[in-house]
Design a protein around this nucleic acid. Structure first.
Lengths: 246, 246
DNA sequence: GTGACGATTATGTATATACATATTGAAACG
DNA sequence: CGTTTCAATATGTATATACATAATCGTCAC
């Protein structure tokens, strides 16, 4: 939960949330500039006529969200937000397509079980060779191709995947909920469609495409690498951010 | 012997953090699957031989982080990860170029002060007409164009910008630190280079480009809209996500 | 049966209190 | 004069307690 969300809920809510939103309001508006020392806990507890614990709860949350910095014996100070971090939501393609009011269709194009090639190992950042499942899938919005999916699953990490054909269910939704993932990395870039992608998306070769690659780890073990390719017009990623590092 | 002394001897960190990490460990590893009911506060406080408040602090943080869901009278349950959100870090272009080991150069191409056009108001999501500053800038890595910047600044929100030529400093760094921003939105997509962009980036017209658009607000007021266009090969956005531990 | 109602239970919030810890500034001392 | 020591102070963590709130369960009257 971001500070803004916390701050937004200003209605009939708990006292420590009110204190939190009051303070974040003053920081956001610039009334308390970076470096400003905010009142001590005992001052705020006097102002709000509450215990120090209640103030402490609010200030601790502000500190964890990165809005303020706390120093023993010195007090709490407004921080300047430094890293521009955006929260990028990546939705299920089915949801995305249906949100556009179009019929979603999924199609498994190809499925190969094999020992990992050097390329597979590079994609998965896998040290040793082992069995992998390579998948190629199409996602359609109405009759038009929406996205093309190329995926490699590390069967050492997800052995159950070897028995799944992925004809009815896409590998993304299948993996979610089955494999608890601990880390993920996205790479987003623009590319020109090669012949394979052009055919799959029914666009001209060389046309611009948005590529989203995702690598997922579960407890240090590489799970899967997936590359989604979207035709340029069909897709925009939207990310929102607030100055907090919540 | 106090609880604090025990905790200090075992981990060095605080007790509620230890409880928090113990639980999130079990969730991540899959030992506690989604839907699993985690022990009640009073059970955990007995297990850890601490007060309910300490357990409550840990569980509240897990709930805020989205790892568990709490229901009165029923208990706390492991949640299924639903929205795949990634933290997308967007760096200063200078930093980015210099990280590649290349010399950074900035160039202001054009600067116009004008009343906002309908297009400007659409970009800024501005209701009423008012003065804006339109800028066009080039960012270079070595001798090669790296990114092209097209920006509109709402002079009603940032009047000081009217007196700045932006010849020596890029508008991005200038704005950061001067305007406390409260919210921003990114849109990321792939486009084919039009003639203007092709000339600016020294690529062929129609070549794929990555476009990052950013809109910034400060306390409900639109501040700026900026569009960065990168040649496809020159740029990849990277986003990482680790389920947080509150 | 079934609907009303109260008991039970788990979480949510807040309190007063206590002691730990880090840091600052000033006093004491060699 | 410089260094050490110590007290003051603000935050950090934990406790025991209290009452509020929401949801669920069982009982009892109708």
């Amino acid at each position: 939960m971001s500070i803004v969300e916390i701050a937004d809920a200003e209605g009939g809510i708990s006292l420590h949330q009110r204190i939190l939103s009051d303070i974040s309001e003053r920081i956001m508006s610039g009334a308390w500039a970076p470096g400003h020392r905010i009142p001590f806990e005992h001052e705020l507890s006097a102002q709000y006529n509450c215990s120090r614990m209640t103030v402490n709860k609010a200030l601790s949350q502000l500190a964890k969200a990165g809005l303020i910095e706390r120093r023993r014996r010195s007090g709490s100070f407004v921080r300047r937000p430094q890293s521009q971090a955006a929260v990028l939501e990546i939705h299920d393609i089915r949801i995305e397509v249906e949100a556009l009011g179009l019929a979603y269709r999924y199609e498994r194009v190809a499925r190969h079980k094999r020992r990992s090639s050097a390329e597979d190992r590079a994609l998965l950042e896998l040290g040793v060779a082992g069995p992998v499942l390579a998948l190629e899938c199409g996602h359609f919005a109405g009759e038009r191709p929406f996205a093309h999916e190329q995926r490699v699953i590390n069967l050492a990490a997800v052995p159950e995947a070897a028995d799944e054909e992925f004809l009815a269910i896409a590998p993304g939704p299948w993996l979610i909920g089955r494999v608890p993932w601990s880390e993920a990395e996205h790479r987003i870039r623009a590319v020109a469609a090669d012949r394979l992608i052009a055919a799959a998306l029914d666009i001209a070769a060389g046309a611009p495409c948005l590529v989203v690659e995702r690598r997922t780890w579960s407890a240090e073990h590489p799970v899967t690498h997936v590359r989604f390719t979207y035709a340029a017009e069909s897709h925009t990623l939207v990310a929102r951010f607030t100055p907090s590092q919540g």
